[in-house]
Design a protein around this nucleic acid. Structure first.
Lengths: 221, 221
DNA sequence: TTAGAAACTTGACCGCCATCAAGAAAGCCG
DNA sequence: CGGCTTTCTTGATGGCGGTCAAGTTTCTAA
């Protein structure tokens, strides 16, 4: 395994040379989390940037009534914690490893120094922020204006598009998918059954979904 | 009116000296929009940073089914358009002046040069991004997990807290407030009537709301 | 001041979807 | 492979809140 295993995965360090990556690697700390373990919790102090070196992390919030909202599903190379790199803040969400997960972390002061030293990092972080903002804006709009059916249809289509295949395995349990789409596992089951009945999709064991008619699925409201 | 009327309002330029502000002021362009006019639309090219010098701008998206989602209410000193300062992108939302509004704009290249020249700007922009992200995350969570009643109660309490008074005028028409909270004007009317009946608030003509029992209001689920 | 428009309120109706419950299927581990 | 747990499906039920409609108040501008 290369000495800069973590940092070379991360888009925000894209523009740096190998020896600069080594510098960064020397200041990160490595952590391992088994599947199901909690990586951070709301109200934790937020003073490090987190990089997912391998594995999968679900980031969610808890509402006052105890219900869960899945915000992000972090994959290898994704980062989290950027929200408070410049001010003392508390976390507002929970992070949980869905599979055995390797995480690298950088302390706030170290990351601030890095940004001063390599201005391209700031620009890349701004880009990450921007994409996440746009994504969340759309998610909010859909959650409040479209039906569960439309949200699920959209999710299926976008997942297929991202994987560039019509047949894929759902990356989440129905329960987690439900908290992501703002609905319940029962509703997901029903809507998927409905789509299958309309011949828009085909379901197979192992959470495999095949999309038969993406165009028609998109028209779902 | 000072020569750097716009830029001195903006938190992201906070750390700059007066003569530096003059430099910035020299590259901004000024625009005026009457009440009700459209400032930008979805699918517009996004190549300028926008600063609200005075007035009020509502930023909203349209869902596939035509329904509106109010995302931000920009006030004096707020900025918009940061999402694409480094990449060619299109706007995904609409901006509409709610009252006569003065806007300053900075072209992307100019702003990129400013950020290189004054690194503190990048850091401030990151802060703005971070706050907006946190706010949106919470908004998403609430929209998908809490009832209309709870969302409205929360909105009233937060508005009162921001204004540091128990009696205030709703800054939005019920229709816009509805698109912000992801509901309808009718539901807002009903819920406000309910709160008044429970003696939690008092309504007066002119969209004046007085909060009588914030603690009890917070418990609304 | 006053007509007209826009915004707001109130009522009746009903559909979507969350909830509860129970049974079926799938995954896990010895 | 077999037993156990977790996840998923399917049914029945009820309530929240969206929609439509009509009346009322507030705002605006001549």
């Amino acid at each position: 395994m290369a000495s800069h295993e973590c940092v070379q995965l991360v888009p925000i360090f894209n523009d740096l040379a190998t020896n600069q990556l080594d510098t960064i690697e020397s200041i990160v700390r490595h952590h391992h989390y088994p599947a199901g373990s909690t990586i951070f919790s709301a109200s934790d102090a937020l003073d490090t940037l987190m990089i997912v070196a391998s594995g999968q992390v679900k980031v969610y919030q808890l509402a006052a009534n105890g219900r869960e909202q899945l915000l992000y599903l972090l994959q290898t190379g994704d980062i989290d914690g950027e929200a408070a790199l410049f001010e003392n803040q508390q976390r507002t969400s929970f992070g949980e490893a869905l599979v055995p997960t390797e995480v690298c972390s950088i302390r706030r002061e170290d990351f601030q120094n890095l940004m001063r030293q390599y201005p391209s990092i700031s620009i890349n972080v701004l880009n990450v922020f921007g994409k996440r903002l746009s994504q969340l804006e759309r998610q909010t709009t859909r959650a409040t204006t479209e039906s569960v059916e439309a949200r699920l249809a959209n999710y299926l289509i976008e997942t297929a598009a991202a994987l560039k295949t019509d047949t894929f395995k759902l990356p989440l349990k129905k329960k987690d998918l439900a908290t992501f789409l703002g609905t319940t596992p029962e509703s997901i089951s029903r809507k998927l059954a409905l789509f299958e009945q309309q011949a828009l999709i085909t379901q197979k064991p192992g959470k495999i979904i095949q999309i038969n008619d993406a165009d028609q699925l998109l028209l779902t409201e």
